[in-house]
């Protein structure tokens, strides 16, 4: 980035209209995710809700958190965190789903009071 004068910023300054547009989009997606619960889409309701949340999260990360304009290494740190959380959750789920049948048969043998 060039420095026309010493008082200009050495980072990308996000234009105000971009911040306003992202804010408006986040409000629209919030309304959408609430409205989506009025429709019965079966298992797709959860997937749709998570897809909308992910679009909102991406807008926050890219524009409010500057990742779109930043050193890509910072984005790599962020994505690495998400990858490890995904690994953590999926491996734990594999394990707990494995012994659910035992829990169910125990619960059937010991009905709640």
């Amino acid at each position: 980035m060039s420095h026309p004068n010493p008082h200009s910023s050495y980072v990308h300054v996000v234009p105000l209209w971009v911040l306003c547009a992202v804010f408006a989009a986040l409000l629209v997606f919030t309304a959408l995710t609430v409205a989506a619960t009025w429709f019965d889409l079966g298992g797709w309701n959860l997937i749709l809700a998570m897809a909308i949340a992910t679009v909102k999260a991406a807008l926050v990360a890219l524009y409010f958190m500057h990742l779109r304009y930043d050193n890509p290494f910072n984005a790599l740190v962020f994505v690495a965190a998400l990858v490890f959380v995904a690994l953590f959750i999926s491996l734990t789920l594999l394990d707990t789903l494995q012994y659910q049948p035992d829990i169910r048969s125990w619960q059937q043998a010991h009905p709640a009071d």
Partner: peptide, 23 residues
């Protein structure tokens, strides 16, 4: 800023624990 992002990484992993319990 890099330092802050590394701190945020630890925060995401911390919240990963409760999201895992939820899942």
């Amino acid at each position: 800023k890099l330092g802050m992002w590394i701190f945020l990484l630890t925060e995401i992993l911390l919240f990963g624990g409760v999201f895992c319990a939820y899942a």
